[in-house]
Design a protein around this nucleic acid. Structure first.
Length: 854
RNA sequence: GGGCACAUAGCUCAGCGGUAGAGCACCGCCUUCACACGGCGGGGGUCGAAGGUUCGAAACCUUCUGUGCCCACCA
């Protein structure tokens, strides 16, 4: 249609205003000057212009008033405007054009050239831009109103980051083509005169009408409206518009529009424009844009990629064979059934504002376990309600309650407030998290455990109160949870044997804050109790004590309040920590041979020499000390910088100062305890090789052989008797032998005590010269080592006596045996346990035997 | 090509100026009378990289790298 050059291109200045002859059609076309279209540095600096078949050229055509010559039919064949190429398919036509140009000697060269080509998503062939009659909506006046409404805050976006997306699109908007050549949709209500071929004559002036115009031959435009044009009417067309119905009056404008951020342009923007135009008011006050679910790599799920997970496969489970390819590869075992509530709760938990969700099957599994946990907690409650059928609300306000009761009610109130706040702020993940933590971490882990003594006890009053609280909390928390887990909560709620005001949890009132439940005193009093329980549990856990083993604990505290609370609620502490005895005292003498847990306002001791592994306890203390030291170092680094004290807010500085003092005191206490249970280092001096640490060596052997006095009650008893009998009237030799025997049992600390006793005896005139004194050390000569070894061996193979001459061989054998045990232990834990059991039995026999020897 | 997000423990994610957290997975002890889809305890991170602001940065700013999404006639 034209040939364009850049005005600054001096090569072509002489051609300005002239025309050229199009060789293949002999049409005369103008040379135009267009600096927008033509880049003089690119190619020849001359470009052909086809306004009917290219977007840029179309704009150029408008600028220069060029004719729009369409050369394609709907099927991309050359039409009557294509001269001799008429009827050819587009790719054929291109080949022919090249051939003809070559033949005429007009083709100078061909060069490969990369360009962006629009490809049809459905048919995968290049799209040919082509002029055709379409309906457009003049958009600017509509957009202006839609922009103003958001700027004025009449409608807000949540998360607000999407406001910018909406604005950018609105501000750069262009007229909206609303006609579509599809098979279904709202047919455009426009009528054209019937043309010669029986089809609409698009050149005629259309009549817009719902019904056929009465006079003349008319045919309705076959096109349908863009689906978003129809959908844009949704906020009011669904409410009876254009009639002025009650529904329309009530629900327009609506409060919250909830949708995906991928259709802000398509739908939200159109609803805004349509609503403002037809109703004169925004369609909704808030637009909440939810996260989109992606696959595990963050890619959008699509059928083409084959990465779509059907929600039903997650809910109901699916064998691998039923899954699409890429999903099957990741889950070759298929998907386990997770349930609708677990899926829903997971989605809520992962819905963080402004982010998309990478769906994690594993995480759904975690919440499935949560569903199970709730179910079992409810089962526990119902099993223990007895004949209690009240909903508890009256009881909890009129009766005196236990500390645990008051505490959980206060926590419930906090959770109610937090859940409400989160929901109001559209923080669904936060709400889900709050409820999860409360239900599992507080209600199940603490309240249910604490309630057992009352429920299983004889105090009728306490029993009834606990039942009331149990059912009340459950009822309330189920309501709070209901939006996140509709099925499970309804099921349990219906099963609760309580009187209800409504027939479904769906319409039960959502819990609101109840200031009367708030109980700061109860929460404060629970603190030392949970601290004590945590501390004792930590000692047990770190020392791998069996839960069945009853232990004693001593708790010392400077705070009288703490002591009183612990004393009053010892029935909470003892069962949760498996205590046989709990002593609560003021600060004073520390129990000997005890594991310790030092807290800021209490010190917990578990005096169990021989049962708690003091070596491990020492490691634990060292670790705690090092942790505290590291923290002090980090804080001190701050203080070294003078500007920190100078410029940081006083409260921050003060907080750090206090923390240093607290940590220092903690380190002191921990170190003190470490000293108290420190083993005395023992050295033996074998003739040739120099000194060896017998304690370490034996300990290493012991642990390799898995010899343990263990938690066995009989063993414990035997040890107590043994120790009771070693206090007085023993010779140095006796102490020495006992030390060896203790070593043999792996009780290093007891052994050390005996060796030291032996050392004391040595200082008397009758002392055995083979046990010389050394400051804070016990030196034992080689024979002692062999005896110790023999003791070890006796434990391992008690019936065989090892002659002194054969000790080396035996030692080698024993080592080989140990290696076998070790290897077995790795592969077959059951076998290792059996081995251990055998060893234990021998210890039982060995201990009283020693006693008898005295 | 333009725009917007995101990058924190093996995985999925919180935290968003003042002592690095959760769930799952992992390790140890336990089939204790709601729950082994469980209980208790534990190990694991120079918070993508480099600069800058600050007394102090995982967090605020800049640049870079990587990943993803949206738009692509116009931003």
């Amino acid at each position: 249609t034209a040939v364009a050059v850049n005005s600054t291109d001096e090569r072509y200045t002489h051609l300005h205003g002239k025309t050229v002859l199009l060789p293949l059609t002999n049409r005369e076309i103008p040379i135009i000057i267009d600096d927008v279209l033509v880049d003089p540095k690119f190619g020849t600096g001359v470009v052909k212009v086809t306004p009917a078949h290219d977007h840029n050229d179309y704009a150029t055509g408008l600028r220069h008033n060029l004719p729009m010559i369409n050369i394609f039919t709907e099927t991309a064949h050359v039409n009557e405007n294509g001269g001799k190429y008429q009827g050819l398919e587009r790719f054929e036509a291109r080949k022919k054009v090249l051939e003809d140009l070559t033949e005429l000697g007009l083709l100078i060269e061909t060069k490969p050239h990369k360009l962006a080509l629009a490809i049809s998503e459905r048919t995968k062939v290049p799209v040919e831009p082509r002029l055709s009659p379409q309906w457009y909506v003049k958009i600017q006046p509509l957009a202006d109103k839609a922009i103003a409404a958001v700027k004025e805050g009449k409608t807000t976006f949540v998360p607000e980051t999407w406001t910018a997306v909406y604005m950018k699109w609105m501000e750069g908007i262009h007229d909206w083509c609303i006609s579509r050549q599809l098979w279904w949709g709202h047919q455009i209500p426009a009528w054209f005169k019937v043309g010669a071929d029986g089809k609409p004559d698009f050149e005629s002036t259309p009549v817009v009408s719902r019904t056929k115009p009465p006079e003349g031959e008319w045919v309705q435009d076959p096109d349908v409206l863009d689906t978003w044009f129809s959908s844009g009417l949704w906020p009011f067309s669904t409410l009876g518009w254009p009639q002025k119905t009650e529904e329309l009056k009530t629900f327009y404008p609506n409060s919250v529009m909830e949708t995906g951020h991928d259709i802000i342009f398509f739908w939200v923007a159109r609803m805004m424009m349509m609503g403002l135009h037809f109703m004169g008011e925004v369609p909704f006050r808030t637009v909440y844009l939810h996260a989109m679910v992606r696959d595990e790599k963050g890619d959008k799920m699509s059928k083409t990629k084959g990465n779509v997970i059907d929600p039903l496969d997650i809910i109901l489970g699916a064998p691998a064979a039923n899954l699409p390819g890429s999903i099957r590869n990741k889950y070759p075992q298929g998907l386990p059934a997770q349930g609708a509530d677990a899926l829903r709760f997971t989605l809520a938990s992962l819905t963080q504002q402004g982010r998309d969700i990478k769906l994690s099957i594993d995480r759904i599994g975690g919440y499935r376990a949560f569903c199970n946990k709730i179910w079992n907690a409810a089962r526990f409650a119902m099993m223990n309600l007895g004949d209690f059928t009240d909903d508890g609300s009256v009881f909890i306000k009129e009766r005196s309650l236990s500390l645990a009761d008051r505490w959980i009610l206060s926590r419930l109130n906090r959770v109610t407030v937090a859940t409400q706040a989160a929901l109001t702020a559209y923080q669904f993940a936060e709400a889900a998290s709050v409820l999860y933590q409360f239900l599992w971490g507080e209600f199940c882990d603490w309240y249910i455990e604490l309630s057992k003594s009352a429920l299983y006890g004889d105090d009728a009053h306490a029993k009834t109160s606990t039942r009331a609280v149990l059912v009340f909390v459950l009822d309330q928390v189920l309501r709070l949870l209901h939006p996140f887990m509709p099925f499970l909560t309804e099921e349990i709620w219906q099963k609760l044997p309580i009187t209800r005001s409504v027939e479904s949890i769906m319409i039960a009132p959502y819990p609101v804050e109840d200031a009367r439940l708030h109980d700061a005193a109860a929460e404060a009093e629970m603190k030392p109790i949970s601290q004590a329980i945590d501390g004792i549990r930590a000692i047990r856990g770190e020392s791998n004590l069996s839960p069945a083993l009853k232990i004693e604990a001593v708790i010392q505290s400077e705070s009288q309040q703490v002591r009183e609370s612990l004393d009053r609620w010892r029935s909470y502490v003892m069962p949760l920590t498996g205590l046989a005895k709990l002593s609560v005292t003021a600060m004073g003498v520390k129990p000997q041979q005890a594991a310790a847990d030092i807290r800021s306002d209490m010190e917990i001791y578990v005096p169990l020499a021989g049962i708690v592994d003091l070596a491990e306890e020492r490691e634990r203390l060292k670790k705690e000390i090092s942790k505290a030291e590291q923290e002090i170092a980090a804080i001190n680094k701050k203080f070294e910088n003078p500007r920190f004290v100078e410029r940081a807010p006083p409260d921050v500085v003060e907080k750090d100062r206090a923390r240093v003092i607290e940590l220092t005191s903690r380190i002191e206490k921990l170190s003190e305890n470490l000293r108290r249970i420190a083993p005395v280092e023992m050295r033996i001096a074998p003739p040739a090789t120099g000194s060896v640490n017998l304690g370490d060596e034996l300990r290493a052997e012991m642990s390799e052989a898995s010899v343990s006095a263990g938690p066995d009650a009989q063993v414990t008893e035997a040890l107590v008797q043994l120790r009771a009998g070693t206090k007085e009237g023993l010779t140095s030799r006796d102490h020495y032998d006992l030390g060896v025997a203790y070593m043999g049992m792996g009780l290093v600390d007891d052994a050390v005590r005996e060796f030291n006793a032996a050392k004391d005896e040595v200082n008397t005139p009758n002392a055995r010269p083979s046990v010389p004194s050394a400051p804070a050390k016990v030196k034992v000569k080689a024979p002692a080592k062999s005896k110790a070894r023999a003791a070890v061996k006796a434990i391992k193979a008690p019936k065989k006596k090892a002659p002194a001459a054969a000790k080396k061989k035996v030692a080698v054998k024993a080592k080989a045996k140990k290696a076998v045990v070790k290897a077995k232990a790795k592969k077959a834990p059951v076998a290792a346990k059996k081995k251990k059991a055998v060893v234990k039995t021998k210890v039982k026999k060995a201990a009283p035997k020693k006693k008898g020897k005295r």
